[in-house]
Design a protein around this nucleic acid. Structure first.
Length: 277
DNA sequence: AGACAAACCTGTCTGC
DNA sequence: TGCAGACAGGTTTGTC
């Protein structure tokens, strides 16, 4: 579900939670990513603090409080972070719930059927010491990614461009949908070796990454099946994708038939005719 | 180093 | 209708 535009959409729609005090914390006890359980004792340390803001780096969200800790959340494939009225029934596979103060009681709920997501508590100011956050490269939206950055990062790399764009230590936030979209937009072949990327292509790719993300944000993110914002709204960007999940359909640029291939075990969509450089 | 496959899970869809 | 198999937005781990 969630690549950068979806996580950013969740971040923005969590704004109504800012200023609320956390009145309780609950977790199902189920393991999430790598069977790691949300740390129950640390979640309790958030109780009594007030939410002061929500940050994002790549696909990770950080919910800041006026206490010493922040909540770290990653959606994996099917994770949802939503605000609900406390009286609403909990969705299946709800694994973490925070009670929030306010005129009418609300809850911040994390649900994740596949349990590929992550929930953790980090000390504010020490975010980079968290292994997941410390490994991230510059953010694809806010990190000043440009042709120079991509050209420099791609030198000496034997990996394919598809793998390069998905590498979170190079660019944080790109996922499988937008990797295909950006490579198509920049007319870069997904199987091209990164070390062979030209300077002009690096610039085109940086521009394409920004364009693809901006377009998706304008459309509220891409909902293929699971993604919803914190207010429950689905994204409309699936209707505007150029190549992802469009095998057999005409390329929007040259009308050739879009193809699907599997690279590193993951689907890649591309145009075999105009995406050959 | 680095490239690749497998593993972690559940839900949904397809084809027989 | 039922069942097996493939597949899904991500990340980590192990193997070559």
């Amino acid at each position: 579900m969630p690549e950068l535009p979806e996580v950013e959409t969740i971040r923005r729609t969590l704004a109504p939670a800012v200023g609320a005090r956390i009145t309780s914390a609950w977790t199902s006890g189920m393991g999430l990513h790598m069977n790691r359980r949300p740390p129950r004792a640390k979640l309790q340390k958030l109780v009594g603090t007030t939410i002061t803001g929500v940050r994002r780096h790549g696909k990770y969200l950080l919910i800041d409080t006026d206490g010493p800790y922040a909540l770290l959340a990653h959606m994996g494939m099917t994770g949802r972070l939503r605000l609900h009225a406390a009286r609403e029934a909990r969705a299946p596979h709800t694994h973490v719930v925070f009670g929030l103060s306010g005129r009418s009681p609300r809850e911040l709920r994390y649900s994740d059927p596949r349990r590929f997501g992550q929930i953790d508590v980090v000390e504010r100011g020490k975010e980079r010491e968290h292994p997941a956050l410390g490994a991230l490269g510059p953010d694809a939206l806010e990190g000043n990614i440009d042709g120079d950055v991509l050209y420099a990062a791609s030198r000496k790399r034997k990996q394919t461009m598809k793998a390069f764009v998905l590498d979170q230590s190079v660019i944080a936030g790109m996922g499988n949908i937008y990797a295909s979209e950006a490579l198509w937009r920049a007319q870069v072949r997904p199987t091209k070796r990164a070390r062979l990327l030209t300077r002009a292509q690096a610039t085109a790719l940086a521009d394409a990454i920004h364009e693809v993300i901006a377009k998706s944000l304008d459309n509220g993110g891409t909902t293929l099946a699971d993604f919803v914002a914190a207010d429950g709204a689905v994204g409309e960007n699936a209707d505007h994708l150029w190549v992802y999940d469009r095998a057999g359909q005409p390329c929007p640029r040259c009308e050739a038939i879009i193809k699907r291939a599997v690279h590193q075990g993951r689907a890649t969509y591309y145009c075999p005719t105009c995406q050959t450089a």
